[in-house]
Amino acid sequence: MLKIIIENLNHREIQSKDNLRKVIDLIHENYIDWMHACGKKGRCTTCKIIVKEGMENLSPLTDREEFFRKNNRLKTFERLSCQANLIKGEIRVKVAEENKFPHMDYTD
């Protein structure tokens, strides 16, 4: 069983039996708004997740993520939710401050 815990959304938990799924797809399928200005194509960083735990449970960095890291737009503890697959276990993530929606209530 795969699990995503979004810490600053009241520790909201998402579980899935499907592996190799994009993190953003799992989030959206659970009716959680998550920013993605480029339409989930890896062309921006608005869908980034701050990974607090479980980085090893995600797929390797994609070329797009490598590009943003080299250009200092993605830190070592951040991933693009449209590029990263949850391949096993659990991850604990947070929504980045700059990517929070005004209509949602976040906890910190």
Rank of each mutant, 00 (worst) to 15 (best):
K100M: 15
I32E: 08
N57A: 09
R73S: 06
I87G: 04
N85R: 04
H11R: 12
H11E: 14
L61T: 07
R64Q: 13
K48Q: 13
N85E: 15
D63L: 06
D33G: 01
H28V: 07
L20P: 01
L9S: 08
V23K: 06
K75N: 09
V93Y: 10
D33R: 13
G89M: 12
R79S: 06
F77Q: 13
N99V: 09
L86T: 08
K88P: 02
G42R: 07
L58D: 03
F77M: 03
Q83A: 05
E66M: 10
G42V: 13
R69W: 04
F68P: 01
R79W: 01
H11G: 07
K52E: 12
H36E: 05
N71A: 00
F67D: 07
L20S: 10
T62W: 02
E7T: 13
L20Y: 07
G89D: 08
L74D: 02
I14T: 14
I49D: 10
L26C: 09
E53Q: 04
V93G: 05
Y31D: 11
R92D: 11
C82N: 02
K17E: 13
F101S: 12
E90V: 11
C38E: 05
N72M: 12
H11D: 12
K41N: 12
I87P: 01
H36A: 15
Y31C: 00
L26H: 09
I5R: 10
L61K: 09
R21V: 12
L58R: 00
K40C: 14
Q15F: 03
E65L: 00
T45N: 02
L20H: 09
K52P: 00
I14M: 06
L26Y: 04
R69I: 13
H28G: 00
C44V: 02
T76E: 15
K41A: 14
K75L: 14
D25R: 01
D63W: 05
K100W: 07
T62C: 07
A37I: 14
K94V: 05
F101V: 05
V51T: 15
E29A: 05
S81D: 01
R64V: 02
E56D: 12
N57G: 07
Y31S: 10
N85K: 12
I87V: 15
A84C: 11
P102Y: 06
C82A: 08
S59H: 06
A84M: 05
